[in-house]
Computed example of a mutant assay.
Amino acid sequence: MKMVAARAGVSVATVSFVLSGRPSGRVAASAETAERVRAIAEELGYRPNQAARAVRTGRSGLVLLSLTQLSDPWCQSVSQAVSAAASGHRLQPLILADGDWGDVLDGQPVDAAFLDAASADDLPRIRTLVDRGLQLIVFSDDLEPDGFDVIRSPQRPGCELAMAHLLASHSRIGCLTGTDPDRPGWHREHAYLDALQQAGIERRPDDLQRYTRDQVGVYEAALRMLDREDRPTAVFAASDFAAITAINVALRLGLSVPDDLAVVGVGNTEEGALMHPSLTSAGPTDFFASLAELIITVAGRPTDHRPRRHDFPWRVHLRESSPA
């Protein structure tokens, strides 16, 4: 920076201001000066030392997104929304694909972190990170804000709405859900079972298929459910990921969606909304853009920000796979 300043005939503070990309600050620079500084920096091959900048400013320019399954459209929607929002704030998302966020955050300085799944069992580790000054946003149906922001998007009422929608037209409804009781799909499975019981409908064992978390596992579960003559006429899938797979399997089997098979997912992802036939899905409205905005705000550490709970109620977004 001193070399750039000497060549440009300006102060080091001016060089710092121009190359930081800040829209305003205590040091101003004319457009002509800023252009000259950037040209000389490019000529000299200047590259900012991010580690040194982090030590000096206390900012890393990184936001961690801990996502449990990158192949899931929900996780992809989070990643895309945050990446788009971060680009205008000189922030870089760091994606952790179903790893141990505690271990990573112990050694990797970040300006903020989003955890897409956390429970009361995780609270001691979360408290340790918060006490160290880490800005955290946690997606949880159980935790309350305590030095960190909580995203609350109650899934049970939304799943009940999805089942009520299907039960209005169908008495044979299958369910695609995950195998892990620690995952959201487990609770969504109970919403399915309770809805059938309340409607007085006996569940057939083959109408509930559990899948492992990879794409092959979801595909095989959907195939087990649909590749038979006594298949259900509708499917409640515990995620848009599973619902999209069910539609693809149905089409491959020569079934018409929704005439032969109605499908409803969970998550209200962009991929589900844009596919053909478009996916009816239960989930919050404008969730991903709002989450991205919150993450960018928290990463900026505004003095007036107070961690709180952010509620996102669900509704059923009716589309082609199961219209009204």
Rank of each mutant, 00 (worst) to 15 (best):
T14E: 00
S16A: 14
V18N: 04
R22G: 09
S30L: 02
R38Y: 01
E43K: 14
Y46N: 07
Y46A: 01
P48M: 04
N49W: 01
Q50F: 06
T57H: 02
G58D: 11
G58Y: 03
L62S: 04
S66W: 02
L70N: 10
S71P: 09
S71A: 14
S77M: 09
V78R: 06
I95N: 11
G99A: 11
G99C: 06
L105Y: 02
D106I: 00
D111M: 01
D111H: 00
A113W: 04
F114Q: 01
A118P: 06
D121G: 12
P124E: 01
G133I: 01
V138D: 01
F139K: 07
D142I: 07
D146E: 15
G147D: 07
G147A: 08
Q155C: 03
M163W: 09
A168V: 02
S169E: 11
R183A: 13
A191F: 11
E202R: 15
Q209E: 14
R213M: 04
G217H: 10
V218R: 14
A221S: 10
L223R: 15
R224K: 14
R231F: 11
V235L: 09
I244Y: 14
I244R: 14
A250L: 03
S256H: 10
V264S: 00
L274M: 12
P277Y: 03
S281C: 08
T285V: 13
I295G: 02
F312W: 10
L318V: 15
R319C: 05
P323M: 09
